[in-house]
Design a protein around this nucleic acid. Structure first.
Lengths: 343, 343
DNA sequence: CTGAAAGCGCTAACAC
DNA sequence: GTGTTAGCGCTTTCAG
């Protein structure tokens, strides 16, 4: 079976030299054609670009990076994949990074293996590192700063005052939920916690509890969280609902916890939602909109957050270090059917 | 506020030269220390390695790649993020790729934007490209072959006979499901389809239908699928269950479809599962084990498939092109509570 | 406006 | 076993 396209010898890509030779120009002239601000005759540039696309030449960013000190690589570090929020986010983020001409190098942080992964990533000299992982602590940003790579923490506070962060206004979101539930006549509020060391968990709780206190509704009880997962939601709900004074409304630190909590409440406790128990989540992942959950939640303005991240990242690669260190985007309450309508 | 660690001037990383100077050796000697099979005095190597970790030197893989023709980058292309199978997979795959000393460059394929993303990826000269996307067709593998980069299709047939593929034995899985359902006494079987052009969809259907025919159970009816998503499962189930002779068992082309189908069957049709309707999925995603679904399904041997992919990839980077073009790993039936026990 | 030459950080011949 | 040299593909002075 013969094949039209024959396999080229491994990696014998067309280079500037080839292009220069075929055009009878010098390599430097050819190179200039790819920079908008380079001095080159418009007509020459046109000839180069035409020929380039003809023979399939693209400048090699690795070689280019060696000299320009810019790899156009954005390192993205993830870890908490049990939370469906992250895959959705990662996809959008990657798309947008590609759209501005950068590429994503993905690292999965494995706390057990040391954070070797981060170091390998850094050896590729990414122009910027974005950390999506809740687990990675300050030593990650130390490692980056040591080699002069700016770090953006996404959906998480910066580990220190040298890093940048982009988050939803989690405290505000928590307060919105408190208002919704108190307005709905609930008095026995509970908070179903995720990872206690996650800033999202802390801020959502704080906003929630403060608003409750401010409205003289006392301090909600809270589960002792361990992770942001379905299983934790299930477990935490059983714990909270098993107490003597059963809560009549649960604010869950995020949607996947809420989903687990709903399953526990309906299956194991035989409760009707929202009649016996109101449930509110945070994030607005796709699952929250599924008919079987139809979860009231606080929507993170993901698109805005990503746009903000991209702006920040692009600015940082250009050396504008003086940007605001912490972006905080307001979230929006999405009322579905796991809460009673406001009176 | 003064800070102990001061930010280095952007990208002024320590290089071989620095290391060589500090050790009073030549750069080549230093370089050799990082290759196990290089000729160098063991004691010299030790000194180099020690000093290197002391001053935080790591060879720059970009510069290295320029000369060795190996970037140690593995390109991973994804698209179908609505299927939770992929995030779980991507994480594990990335971990394993990191474990063998490669790094993942992630591309999200956006059919609308042309497949520019793939070309940008290729400009980084990845040693290998792994395609997780169901959508990407043969032109992707053409583009890769044109530049001499081997392609592995994961969970999908190769688009042509030059590419490699790693899949579950989908036809076998379909047959296992047919046996389970027929043994359970079901006679009105239905197939809830995903993307019709996906090889997984086709193979699972084929294995299922053939086994039914072989056991004289006729040809199951099938929905007309469009995607692998919750919504499609919901919609497809309503369509199949609305027919005159309602099926008493549904084989869904994957788990996320099955989950959507269960919600439709229980909520909209008031059916009990498995009493009124048996449901079987495919993949064994985490959600399949959740108490509210507890889905009988065919487990893809993901770990084996990944191990096979890594072996293949590593072999290919070493130039062993003669490996088996299509790996097919057998899946395993996981019986949970959406099917009646076998008599 | 274009070309020649130097050099980014690294490895691979080739001498010694 | 080690140092010297050349060069990967590219950009960037510096002349012309």
């Amino acid at each position: 079976m013969s094949t039209a396209l024959k396999r080229e010898p491994r990696n014998s890509r067309v280079t500037v030299k080839d292009l220069a030779r075929q055009l009878g120009m010098s390599v430097s002239t050819v190179s200039r054609a790819f920079y908008d601000d380079a001095v080159i005759a418009p007509e020459t540039r046109e000839r180069v670009l035409l020929k380039a696309s003809e023979i399939g030449y693209q400048p090699n960013p690795l070689a280019r990076g060696l000299i320009t000190k810019s790899s156009r690589i954005v390192g993205v570090v993830v870890s908490d994949i049990t939370n469906p929020f992250y895959p959705e986010l990662l996809t959008k983020l990657t798309e947008q990074i590609q759209a501005v001409g950068f590429n994503v190098m993905l690292v999965v942080d494995q706390p057990d293996r040391g954070d070797d992964g981060l170091n390998v990533l850094l050896s590729y000299h990414p122009d910027i590192v974005i950390i999506l992982a809740t687990t990675l602590s300050s030593h990650a940003s130390d490692a980056c700063r040591r080699v002069g790579t700016p770090v953006i923490f996404f959906n998480r506070h910066a580990a220190d005052e040298h890093s940048f962060s982009v988050t939803c206004d989690n405290a505000l979101g928590g307060a919105l939920v408190a208002d919704l539930l108190l307005d709905g006549g609930h008095r026995r509020l509970g908070f179903l916690a995720g990872r206690p060391d996650a800033s999202t968990n802390q801020d959502r709780w704080r906003g929630f509890a403060h608003r409750c206190a401010a409205r003289d509704a006392g301090t909600p009880r809270s589960s002792d969280g361990r992770s942001f997962s379905y299983e934790e939601g299930y477990r935490g709900a059983l714990a909270l609902l098993g107490e003597s004074e059963r809560p009549d409304a649960l604010f869950c630190a995020n949607d996947i916890l809420a989903v687990g909590a709903m399953d526990a409440a309906r299956r194991d406790c035989g409760l009707r939602i929202p009649e016996d128990l109101a449930i509110v989540g945070f994030d607005d992942i796709a699952m929250a909109g599924w008919p079987s959950y139809n979860l009231t939640t606080v929507r993170q303005p993901v698109d805005q957050m990503i746009a903000g991240t991209i702006d920040l990242a692009v600015g940082l690669t250009r050396g504008d270090m003086g940007q605001s260190a912490a972006q905080r985007h307001p979230g929006e309450l999405v009322t579905r059917s796991t809460t009673r309508p406001r009176p």
